[in-house]
Amino acid sequence: MSTVNATAPRTRREMTRLLENEALARLSRMRLQPVRRRTNRTHGEHLAGKGGVSTEFADYRDYVPGDDTRFVDWNIFFRLQRPYVKLFRLEEVMHVVIVIDSSSSMQFEDKLLRAQQLAAAFGVMGVMGMERVSIYVCGDSSSGSTSLSPCAGRVSMRRMFDFLEQEQSGGDCSFDQAIDKVLARHTGRGIAVLLSDFLTFGNIQRGFNMLYSAGLEAFAVQILGPSEISPELDGDVRLVDSESGASLDISSAGDLMGFYQEQRRAYESQLAAACRQRNGRFLSIGSHVPLREVLFDQLLRQGWMR
């Protein structure tokens, strides 16, 4: 588990306390890989799903009258004596929306820190890929979310790190409430990186549906602490919710571990299915897993980035 203190002052050799320089350098060379290329009309470096004018060849098609003859591939015409039109991909700007859950449940076992680190990693990949990166931190349900307005390019990196390194307070904001707050302020298509433990009593499906409707692919990362992955409880205990303060009496907790793991795995499957059905991605990690392993092993192997 990382021992990074996000709020500690940076040294001169560091750009951020969240990421090591080596990882930062490697991340700056990597790009996010969305599933369905939801882009905006604004021209950019990101290839749009539809055809357009760019240097990136896409396909051929038969020439039909009215087509621009500039796009006829004359080499093919001379070889086959039939005109074919070259099609090119459209490179557009893609929005990268990073949503960080900073509720009280994320205050346990460095889950929030890991979320900040991942947000920094995704943000670096976004701004270095000239995408428009915006970050939203959702904690308290009564107040609004703090956010980083969309930014792009290397010049925005410092501002992004400063935003992420702010100390975040807890709250009881649920997942769907957080999505509501984000979508109330965000416009643009792209991907939504959701960094949360998703341990909320809210309607999970609704949040994913709203993201899908807004043209955002849900890249969900569930961050759980070791005590949530393998609780060490036994006997008769009274569990107290860190967010709502509600209590729940558990008898013979040791015997319920099997049921708990079943429920946890079922919930993970439910989250993964929700993401997959909406062209998204899902990954559940432990806060104790090293960041390097998460970034350059799990996320890379699962095609989250390239």
């Binding site: 449940s105 889950k111 341990l199 205990v237 009274r238 107290v240 919710d241 967010e243 708990y260």
Partner: peptide, 28 residues
């Protein structure tokens, strides 16, 4: 029953656990 209090991030999973019919069986 005098139960020790344990503060956890969320009761969401545990609430689902104790709603399991098998958990509430008398033998269990």
């Amino acid at each position: 029953l005098r139960r020790p209090k344990v503060r956890i991030p969320s009761l969401m999973l545990w609430a689902q656990v104790i709603h399991d019919q098998r958990v509430n069986s008398p033998f269990q």
